[in-house]
Design a protein around this nucleic acid. Structure first.
Lengths: 186, 186
DNA sequence: CCGCTCATGTAACTGGTTACATGATTTA
DNA sequence: TAAATCATGTAACCAGTTACATGAGCGG
């Protein structure tokens, strides 16, 4: 029945989405992933459809064919085994990989700011600032759309807000590092 | 010469690492990646060696065979074309994918906290808190090791610290959401 | 001399990606 | 009726992963 192999982050996340929705189709999962402010997953068909089949054959979800008119539809639900797996993924205990410094492309780039001609560095910072503002708006849009569905969904927005704040504050750090680097050169 | 295809995030990041080091071997790149507090990349040989070959054949780095005794070594350096590519990656302008809400496995899990039996939820939060503290220590260790090498390296640590702070603060949000959910049930 | 680290690589796999294909239904 | 969206999928690809192989040099 339920195979014992390790599940990917996306698999477990999707399992959670299906659980949260009560019952939903692959297409809905795709939408949820695509609408997410995080660009971690694209919600591409090539990922989602096979993934749900995998979850199904592992016994974590069960499908039944609902249909609207002549349009076929596969509705998935999480099984009890699936819920067990979901809980194991959420923790506690948290597996090690679940907590580490997250990957921030902005940080990665800032690491090599010294590679830019000095004049471009400040422009980089203000560009980053502007981009972060857009991210913040994206979080807000997401919030309007989904925050009602679950008491814990509001926390997602809070997280996004806090994260954006801290990245903004950090950009100020970057700016002052630029200033002191300039002073050193002078 | 320089092929025009799109480079992956890792490719550009490694290009940056080589640039920063002035000259370094694939093995050193692996170490740098493995020591990083972020677990985004493992620094596996299977990723790094072919990647540097790719960068080489794209004209972004040039190798020469240095050797210590009988031990062979390929030393890479960034070419002018490579520096151009690196700068393009860093920005400005920042490409869209470079800025979005970052992926936080903790957040993903918290989204489905309602799937846990109520008693386990607080345990989850304290587990997360403990795990974050370990992350903070890892950042500190990294700082001791690398912060001297470049004026901008200190910013990496700052980022890690700010991020950890904001995630910790968010865990407090989670906790109070748990409390109010409990009140609602009562 | 044994085991660890340095150092370079390959082979098999895999979980994602883009792009494509198909057809029903809705909206301008 | 044409275009967009809903809905389901497949095929080719690719950038990573783990695991393995090989050998030099070093410390106990």
């Amino acid at each position: 029945m339920a195979s014992q192999r390790r599940h990917s982050e996306l698999e477990c996340f999707v399992l959670g989405l299906v659980w949260q929705a009560g019952s939903c189709s692959a297409y809905q999962v795709r939408r949820l992933l695509a609408d997410s402010p995080s660009s971690q997953w694209s919600g591409s068909a090539g990922a989602v459809y096979p993934l749900l089949r995998r979850l199904e054959s592992a016994g974590h979800v069960r499908a039944r064919a609902g249909s609207t008119g002549k349009r076929r539809r596969r509705e998935y639900r999480v099984t009890t085994a699936g819920l067990r797996t979901l809980r194991g993924w959420i923790g506690p205990p948290l597996r090690g990989e679940a907590v580490s410094v997250s990957y921030d492309p902005l940080r990665s780039r800032a690491r090599f700011l010294a590679a830019l001609p000095p004049g471009a560095r400040r422009a980089w910072v203000s560009g980053a600032r502007a981009a972060l503002d857009q991210v913040a708006r994206r979080v807000d849009r997401w919030h309007e759309r989904y925050s009602d569905s679950d008491p814990f969904m509001g926390l997602m927005t809070r997280h996004g807000k806090r994260e954006t704040e801290s990245r903004r504050a950090w950009l100020t750090d970057v700016e002052s590092a630029l200033t002191s680097a300039q002073r050193r050169r002078a």
